[in-house]
Computed example of a mutant assay.
Amino acid sequence: MRFPAYFPGSSRTLFAAAALALCAASSQAAEPIIIMVGGINKIIYLPAKLTEALGYFKEEGLNVELQSQPAGVDAENQLIAGAVQGVVGFYDHTIDLQSKGKEIEAIAVFCKVPGEAEIVSTKAAAAGFKSFADAKGKNYTLGVTGLGSSTDFLTRYLAERSGVPSKDYTLLPVGAGNTFIAAIKQDRIQAGMTTEPTISEVLKSGDGKVMVDLRNEKDTIAALGGIYPAASLYVQNAWADAHKAEATKLARAFARTMKWISTHSAAEIADKMPKDYYGNDKALYVQALQASLPMYTNDGRMPAGGPESVLKVLAATKPLIKGKNIDLSKTYTNAFIPGDIK
């Protein structure tokens, strides 16, 4: 690098140091971190796109690329394969994967509850399907986003808790959004678990009703026996150990977003979202977001008692987890989130 003749020696030294620091920062920022989101336009995963929109990734010196998969289980597979560095998906995958010998940990938690609901079709409800207990002996088809997904785990647990054995129903992967809505309309599923804004769209059209609500703490505790921390950013433990600086910046960026959400209205949050997230019905999107605000954490930290509650649910339906010694301390950490979030 050449310096103008009028720069004195000391100034040249300072200028060179500043230039080198800038180059080093640019080089670091250019290292992409790919985060796979299990359905990027779902309100439960809204913090991913919102963090990008607020500019927090860039402010932290990160070059984050957000990608989307329709189901969390697909995103999980990408992480295990090393194709992505992080996943925005349900915390319960960290427990499930530990039972399979994989160490994954949530480093920022967005939701205290699943933010989902079991929607029963209006037709099936009229025929007597009004609770999970009504599925006993009926061989209903129940929709989930994907087999092995969190909606799969939760559906099985709700059925078992209601005394309905797995032989009495069939799980069908139908994704979310338009594919879920089509499955309800076409009677390919009699009920299914989905998230906002799909829930509000189905209710508005009159094609379905809420059978089990997991969008707030009160109803979630009633249905599952405890809170169920869900949407989170999780990474491989080995990656976090080897990239502490990046992990800290990611966790801090998301923690700042959760604080921002806690101090802004649904309408203000919606204004930050891409138009294709709400299409021609922004009012419905704001309504769905308003109903979802209570599910979010305000600091990105794991809620006390949450991991134990999730483990209890999974152990009830998954043989690989039941009776196994799961080390919950390896499935999440609050260590990367600063005490004072600004």
Rank of each mutant, 00 (worst) to 15 (best):
R2Y: 12
F3E: 05
A16F: 06
A21Q: 13
A24P: 08
Q28R: 09
V37F: 03
N41L: 09
L54N: 08
Y56D: 02
N63S: 05
P70D: 13
N77I: 02
Q78P: 04
L79D: 11
G86Q: 11
Y91V: 15
D92C: 14
T94D: 11
D96W: 05
L97R: 14
A106G: 05
F110Y: 06
G115R: 04
I119D: 08
V120L: 02
S121I: 11
K123M: 10
A124D: 15
A126H: 12
K130D: 15
A135K: 02
V144F: 10
T155A: 11
T155Y: 06
L158Q: 13
L158P: 07
S162D: 15
D168W: 05
D168H: 04
A176H: 14
G177P: 05
N178D: 14
K185C: 08
Q186L: 12
E196I: 00
M211V: 01
T220E: 11
A223N: 11
A223S: 15
N237T: 09
N237Q: 11
A245H: 02
A251W: 04
A253I: 09
A253W: 03
A253K: 04
M258V: 01
K259M: 14
S262E: 15
A267K: 12
D276N: 13
Y277T: 11
G279N: 13
L284D: 07
A291V: 05
R301F: 05
S309V: 06
V313P: 05
A316F: 00
K322Q: 13
N325Q: 13
T331L: 03
T331A: 07
F336D: 09
D340Y: 15
